[in-house]
Simulated scan of single mutants.
Amino acid sequence: MSNSMKKIDPRALGKVAVLMGGRSSEREVSLMSGQGVLDALRAQGVDAHAFDPAEQELGALKAQGFARCFIALHGRFGEDGTVQGALELLGIPYTGSGVMASSMAMDKIMTKRIWRFEGLPTPDWRMVASPEATTAALAALGAPMIVKPARDGSSMGLTKVTDASQCAAAYALAAKYDDEVLCEQFIAGEETTCAVLGEGAAAAALPVIRIVAPDGNYDYQNKYFTDVTQYHCPSGLPADEEARIQQIVEKAFRTLGCRGWGRADVMIRQSDRQPFLLEINTSPGMTSHSLVPMAARARGMSYEQLCLTILASASLDSTSSEERAA
């Protein structure tokens, strides 16, 4: 954490593109995140400019002389390794995880396979390709069950299924967003999220946030456009429970090879207080409702400091970890 709080000279960061908007289903939220980041960076003297990949070709970044990019894109074509790969080819350092880590983290099924292999706790699941397979998954996993796209975020296309009669509609909704659909065992208990800043051994978790949504429904609307969801930071969890979640999230972050920053969602099973990793976001939201800024504030870091710290960590896959840490 000490590296993330060191003095940063905004002028030394050069001309910066804040990538926002894009073509994913999360475009609206990305525009809000990007505007917040843009304003924060400019307020600190960074030569920052908005750049929407849906409106300009990425090659224009090179032509316009950008020295680094802050990726405030969410979902497909922004958080899945595609933009990261393009920036690698252009040789422009960018914030967040590299090509492979971004791609794996975006794919919830691949993420769960890796976590399970590494002995990290994650709910049981099935990948399905039809309504009939969704019904079979419900029989195997039990009710309730979560049905969601394998490669989308912000709870888009998600359904909590309690009865077999709901399976066909739940599958159809998820399949609108992705041809790979994930059926996941529902964990009844408390919902939390935990952010990480840094890379490798220096990656450190921020304070855990406990989320209390109306009727447990932490959906797209309640995430970004209402004020009825409660966020507790400090979490109010026992200290040993919070420490365990932070330890699991740091390992989950490192296991996927993530860097820079990220945020993992964790359910605590009510029956035995066992934490379960749901997914990890490598380009989390930075809106007024977003959770990484909230956790950073609890650690004594302002929104502006957080944005500057993340920007200063921008790098390329081809850059060694020692160079990135310098």
Rank of each mutant, 00 (worst) to 15 (best):
Q166N: 04
L158F: 10
C167H: 07
D107K: 11
V147H: 13
I187W: 09
Q185I: 00
E199V: 02
L141C: 01
Y171W: 14
T193H: 07
A168H: 11
S102W: 11
G157V: 13
M106K: 08
P131V: 06
A203V: 04
A150Y: 12
Q166Y: 05
T159Q: 10
A172L: 08
Q166V: 03
T122N: 09
A175W: 09
A101F: 08
W125K: 00
T122E: 02
D124E: 14
E184M: 09
P121E: 12
C167N: 03
T134Q: 07
R116S: 14
E180Q: 15
Q185F: 01
R126G: 00
A105N: 04
A140L: 11
K160H: 01
A172F: 00
G198V: 11
L158G: 01
D178W: 10
Q185L: 01
A129F: 12
A174R: 04
K176T: 14
F117K: 13
Y177R: 12
G157I: 14
L173H: 08
P121I: 10
S102T: 03
D107H: 07
E132G: 00
T193P: 06
G153Y: 10
V181Q: 14
A133N: 01
A139P: 00
W115P: 02
G189F: 11
A169I: 03
R116D: 03
R151K: 12
P144K: 06
L141R: 04
A202H: 14
C183H: 03
A129W: 06
T193M: 04
M106H: 06
T159D: 05
S103L: 05
P123F: 06
E190S: 13
G119C: 06
C167R: 09
D163F: 01
K112T: 06
L141Q: 03
A204I: 00
M110F: 14
T134C: 15
G119R: 03
P149G: 08
I187A: 10
T135L: 05
V99S: 13
A202R: 15
A129S: 13
P123V: 05
G200N: 14
E118H: 08
G119F: 05
S103H: 10
T111R: 02
Q185V: 01
G153Q: 02
S154P: 09
T122K: 05
Y177C: 13
C167P: 01
R151V: 00
Q166W: 03
T193L: 09
A201N: 12
A164W: 00
E132Q: 13
V99L: 07
C183S: 05
D179H: 13
V99P: 09
A201S: 15
A140M: 06
M145C: 04
T162R: 12
K160E: 01
A101N: 06
K160C: 09
L120W: 07
G198I: 12
C183G: 07
Q185P: 00
E191A: 06
T122Y: 07
C183V: 05
G119W: 07
I114T: 04
Y177Q: 11
L182N: 04
G157Q: 10
